[in-house]
Amino acid sequence: MIEIAGIIFITVGLLFDLLGCIGLVRMPDVYNRLQASTKCVTFGTCSIMFGTFLMVGFNATGMKALLCIIFVALTAPVSAHALSRAAHKSGIKLWDKSVVDQYREDCPAE
């Protein structure tokens, strides 16, 4: 029973990882690509790890999987933030059809 739950979690995780990768290809600019890939890949990876934990149970491997969930959930948004900020500071434009950029108004790129 718990094996089946684990397999379901891993399948859902793989599906979201795949969607994140499709988003990486389909979205028009750096920022939208980061949005799609960060959200989907973080959730997908966490889901895969949780599935792994359910399948192996409370031992060294399962515990490492649980700790990885915490680390991924804490670090993935930080790296997305660092990448988008660096992209904006180095003058990469938003997509042509973007409606507003209040960050550019406040901190013009050098």
Partner: peptide
């Protein structure tokens, strides 16, 4: 995000 990625028209209106 999944909806926006899969949708053929790409329904996004981005901005900061």
């Amino acid at each position: 995000v999944a909806y926006r990625v899969i949708h053929p028209m790409r329904p996004i209106k981005p901005g900061i």
